[in-house]
Structure formats: C-alpha cells, structure tokens
Design a protein around this nucleic acid. Structure first.
Lengths: 152, 152
DNA sequence: TGAAAATAGTATAAGTTTAAACTATACATA
DNA sequence: TATGTATAGTTTAAACTTATACTATTTTCA
C-alpha cells in the first residue's frame, strides 16, 4: 500500500464533485421528464430515436449507454404506452427493429427540445464556452483512462 | 422554444462525456468492490465511517449522497453481515446511531485504501494536477448552478 | 457439411432508486 | 398544556441495474 497524502489524491478530490454534479444535473432534468409521464431511461430511449428509422436492441444499448438486459423491460413499458413498436428484421431472425410510433414521434418532437431548453441555462450560467470544451476533454480523458488498463 | 444550434449546446456537449466518464470510473471501482463481497452503496457506507464513532441515518445520508429510504435496506444487509450495528441514541428515541463493528472496522481498514490505490493511477494517467483542480472547480460550478434556480 | 463459437434478445434474482406515505417521537407556540 | 408541525426512520410499489444464464439464431472454419 502506497504512502500517499489522501488530501492530494486526485481520485478522492474529483469523486465527490463528480457525483454531486451528476446528481444535481439529473435531478433538474429528471423532474421535468417524469412530469411528462416518462422515466429517465424511457426518455433516453425516446430521445435517441430522433431522426432514425429504428435500431436493434444492441445498437440502442450502445447509443443510450443502457445495458441490453435493462432495455427489455424499458422497451416493454414504452411499447405498452404505444410509443414504440418492435418489428422483425428481414435477414436476421434473432434481431428486432425498434422504432417510434407516430405517437412516439410526436412526443419526441415535443419533449427533446424542451429538455435541452430546460437544461441549457444551467450550463451556460455555470461555465464559459472554453470551459465547456475543457470539461468535455477532461471527462473524455478520464473515460479513456478507465477503459484502458492502468499503467502501474 | 429558442432557436439554437444543437451542435453548440453546452448541455448536449457535456452530457455524454459526463455519463461515459461516470460509468467508466465506477465500472473499474465497482468490480473491485464486488470482489470484496460488498455492493457499491454498501461500500460507500462502510467507507464513510472511517474515523467516526457513528452517525445517525440522516447524517449518513448526507455524507454518502444516498437517499434516506435507500439506507434502510443497505444498513439492513450490512447489519446481517455483522459489519455495522444500530444503537439507540440517549436523548432522541426517534434516532439511531449506526457504527462499524470490530469486523466492519477491519474491513474498512483493508478495503478503503485498496480502493483509493486502485483508482489513483487511472486519474493520474489521465489528468495533471492543474487539470484535477480545474475539473473539480467546474464540476462544483455545475452542481451549484443546478441547485440554484436558473437565470432565465 | 457440421460442430463450435458468437450474437440477439430475453429471463432471473438480488439489490438499489424514487416518490410517496406512514409511525413514532420531538419541538414550537398559541 | 394542547395542538399543530417538523423530524427520524421505515415501508411500499414500480422501475431500474447488475451479473449471470438461457434460447434461438447465425457465423465460422476445420
């Protein structure tokens, strides 16, 4: 076990601000999403379909960062609300094409811009354009580092 | 609804890197935590008790950022593992003092430094000291902004 | 070709999250 | 002091997450 001053530990320094920012951001957004009758993961799915003509479950999983196993239930409930539909894929009987219904598209056109408009001021009042770019870069660095094996 | 180029939207620019970094960081840490027989929230609770002589449920909730209602079950399971114990508080019969058992302290002394040592290299290889400080500041800004009402 | 390996989607179980309501106790103040 | 209000912790129900395993298909390649 290394000798290390915990007050200077980069992990411990970033962890709490990261969790607090993450929670605060989603607390604002989630309240709005729930008021529209969706749960946050359900919104993620609807939001992802934007201009597309549908995706398979695996593609949707990659796009939304939701686990494949979680999607089964989320899609079930969106289907029950008649917001999306599952269709068979011609050349692969394992796969499913999932897409918005007419009703789902209407909801998308309403809820997605509203969500972006709701969140934008919180970001604009907190950070300059340069800071946004810097933040974006540092978070990407961190993500890449954690996906690689560590040096030591 | 504002006219706005979505490609420049600070919210949309930061959101995905934030979620990806968050997931990648916790994916590394969580694997380690589970290998020690704890779930991530259970680890958070054990880690929080460090040098303390115990806390109430509300204090623990503030310290760990876990919801009060979630803590009931988490504490139940940690108590079943004999890692923490609930004791009554002298002057307030509503409150409960929660603290590590001997067994829980031993686990804490082992698992907390191990976790910090595991995560440190990923952060050190991703960001300089200055960047760590900048990241910390920007995340705090964002948190504060989201906790305030928006300007507009 | 035909068996092994990979893939798509679903199922399962344990644990967590959220919002909401509820119980018991403490506090405030009229 | 009585009564309303706040607080601590728990409970409930619905949805989600994770790891794991399973079914049905497709792909690979010996």
């Amino acid at each position: 076990m290394d000798v290390f001053d915990l007050k200077d530990d980069p992990y411990l320094k970033v962890l709490r601000p990261l969790v607090e920012a993450y929670q605060a951001i989603f607390q604002v957004g989630d309240r709005h999403i729930r008021s529209m009758g969706l749960t946050p993961p359900q919104f993620d799915v609807v939001a992802e379909f934007g201009a597309t003509t549908g995706m398979t479950c695996v593609e949707l999983s990659q796009a939304t960062l939701l686990a494949k196993a979680s999607l089964t239930g989320i899609i079930d409930r969106l289907e029950a609300k008649k917001l999306i539909e599952r269709k068979t894929v011609p050349n692969d009987r394992r796969a499913t094409n999932i897409r918005l219904t007419r009703k789902g598209e209407n909801l998308y056109r309403k809820i997605f811009p509203a969500q972006a408009n709701l969140m934008r001021p919180y970001f604009e009042q907190a950070l300059t354009k340069q800071e946004i770019t810097a933040l974006q870069d540092m978070l990407s660095q961190l993500r890449n580092s954690c996906r690689r094996e560590p040096l030591s």
